[in-house]
Write a protein that binds this DNA or RNA. Structure first.
Length: 522
RNA sequence: GCGCCUAUAGCUCAAUGGAUAGAGUAAUAGUCUUCGGAACUAUUGAUGAGGGUUCGAUUCCCCCUGGGCGCACCA
């Protein structure tokens, strides 16, 4: 990375910050203050000290050389050193069994997969784990409603049927409080391996997994493991014992809890003896540490579970477990007027969103085949989600989700296709000569080397949006350049083909990391 | 009540202590005899209120206001 080379020039005792100036005429890098720089003609073209800044202009040859490396094997290997053979486990997607895959789960799935890809690109050993919600009192509720109101055998039910029954349970439970007790009883039976309960439970899982697999395939998402909560059934007792030996578990109102200094307590075992998702999560952490020995465990879970995550992390510390933990705690998707309410049937199903986006994509380019239309539609939906800071809530807006112009996935896909279209007519043969470059050309050239910096920053900040923003910037610069100059047949042909080829390669790699398809024609 | 997150242009978002706060969208006016108009150009338009730290604050701290999320038998 140019940035690292620059740091080397500044010497070991330099600990200031190296930034990119906000204004282009101030060069490629800026350091606050008056720094001594040993001139290096290979790297630095000139140094300019102005208004308390030391502005550094990178040599054009160097910029070209750096750009040439992008995408090469050597370049990739260099970047893989960033991870330094460390291991991370990321917990993402985690939909609940017997509920349809709503727009809400999209964030965890998309952001989680992108973070996984980013870390992998930087040479981390990555393990993705889909912590399915396949255990808990909700199954007691489900079993009760299936037995009471189910109008056909479970195995013939669709995920919509199951969801409807779950909603019905809540409606009825409003009127009849004894239903809740009944549900807890059935869950207790399930935990005690009752045959009937287990059979219904297994069927619900089969129905749900079929649906989830369909959606993951559609989204192009592949999660290494799907060890749901039920996987940890026989691993919970050991955790309780461990908590006992450390003396951090205590009795309270018939239940067993862990207390914290600055947080409300977490319940480990309920007063009726059944387990909680907190306990299952602790068993999960233990299993992950023992199995993969991770340096870092990332949770891509919504902000509504921030407290729960902090309790897990804190308890892990109390148990003497050492990996670094991080929860993305992404913001919720909601309407401008307020939140989604599942009970009122306001959940938006992902398939509905995809269908509408495809309709939109078809309108714009009816000549495209279904595969391309799907790639564009899903590109739009995913990018809309990834481009914004994970921490913030997303205001759900049909127009935004399906947007195919401006700051959108299809804008990037289009720019990529445009590059390929040019290169298809004339490809780059010779090495680029260092002749006169126009301002727009230089501006584009100066974007290329920042690519790797942005991947690193995205990893550090757990934010694919950093990368998404960069790609938009790059595409915009290319399109500005493209609109102003002709490429083929001009005397600057070589350098312009070079710019086109490099833009294409970065867009391809970048979109790939974000999990968005590119195509040569669209 | 307590805790976490958040407030930037009409709307949706960038800017992680630095120079002239950037995009998209909407609105208006433009750009094709030439490589893809899902594009490009131009105009209009913004840091919730008040204190503090700093040479310098959208950014850090305090307080107020508005929004979101959470706070033991759902997960």
């Amino acid at each position: 990375m140019i940035k690292d080379e620059l740091k080397k020039l500044l010497g070991n005792d330099f600990n200031g910050k190296i930034d990119h100036p906000t204004i282009e005429k101030f060069g490629d890098f800026a350091i606050r203050g008056d720094v001594e720089i040993t001139e290096d003609k290979e790297l630095i073209d000139s140094v300019d000290k102005v208004a308390g800044f030391t502005n550094i202009f990178i040599n054009k040859e160097k910029l070209i050389n750096e750009a040439e490396k992008i995408g090469s094997e050597q370049w990739q290997k260099e970047l893989e050193k960033v991870g330094n053979e460390k291991t991370m486990v990321i917990d993402y997607s985690a939909p609940n069994i017997a509920k349809s895959f709503g727009i809400g789960h999209l964030r965890s799935t998309n952001i989680g997969q992108a973070i996984y890809n980013i870390y992998k690109f930087l040479g981390w050993k990555c393990i993705g784990d889909n912590h399915l919600g396949d255990w808990g009192t909700q199954f007691g509720k489900l079993i009760v409603s299936i037995k009471k109101w189910g109008d056909k055998p479970v195995e013939e039910m669709s995920i919509e049927n199951l969801e409807a029954l779950y909603v019905k349970f809540h409606e009825e439970a409003e009127k009849d409080k004894s239903l809740d007790d009944e549900a807890r009883e059935w869950f207790s039976k399930l935990e005690n391996k009752d045959n009937e309960a287990t059979e219904i439970w297994q069927k619900c899982i089969d129905i749900s997994m079929k649906e989830f697999d369909r959606i993951y395939q559609l989204l192009g998402v592949k999660i290494d493991y799907a060890l749901g909560e039920s996987f940890y059934l026989d691993k919970m007792e050991a955790v309780v014992k461990l908590m006992e030996s450390k003396g951090i578990i205590k009795n309270s109102e018939g239940a067993r809890i862990v207390e914290f200094e600055k947080m409300p307590p977490a319940m480990v075992i309920k007063s009726n003896g059944t387990t909680t998702y907190f306990l299952r999560d602790m068993a999960t952490v233990k299993y992950r540490i023992e199995t993969w020995k991770p340096d870092l465990i990332i949770y891509e879970i919504g902000a509504d579970q921030e407290l729960h995550c902090r309790q897990i992390f804190e308890t892990a510390k109390m148990l003497g477990w050492t990996p670094q933990f991080y929860n993305v705690a992404h913001g919720m998707i909601r309407w401008a007027e307020g939140k989604f309410s599942t009970r009122k049937g306001q959940t938006i199903h992902l398939s509905e969103v995809i269908d509408k986006a495809m309709e939109e994509a078809r309108k714009i380019a009816p000549e495209n085949d279904e595969t391309k239309i799907k790639a564009v539609a899903i590109g739009a939906i995913k990018f809309n989600d990834l481009k914004q800071d994970p921490k913030k809530d997303i205001i759900f807006d049909w127009e935004k989700v399906m947007s195919m112009e401006g700051n959108s996935g299809p804008y990037l896909q289009y720019t990529y296709a445009r590059c390929q279209s040019v290169l298809n007519k004339k490809s780059l043969k010779t090495k680029v000569q260092n002749q006169k470059w126009e301002e727009e050309e230089m501006s584009l050239l100066r974007e290329f080397y920042k690519f790797e910096e942005k991947i690193v920053e995205a990893a550090e900040r757990f934010s694919p949006a950093v990368l998404a923003e960069y790609l938009l910037n790059l595409a915009r610069k290319y399109n500005e350049f493209y609109a102003k100059f002709r490429i083929i047949g001009e005397k600057e042909e070589e350098q312009r083909l070079f710019l086109t080829e490099r833009t294409g390669i970065i867009l391809k790699i970048g979109l790939d990391i974000l999990g968005i398809e590119t195509m040569d024609k669209m």
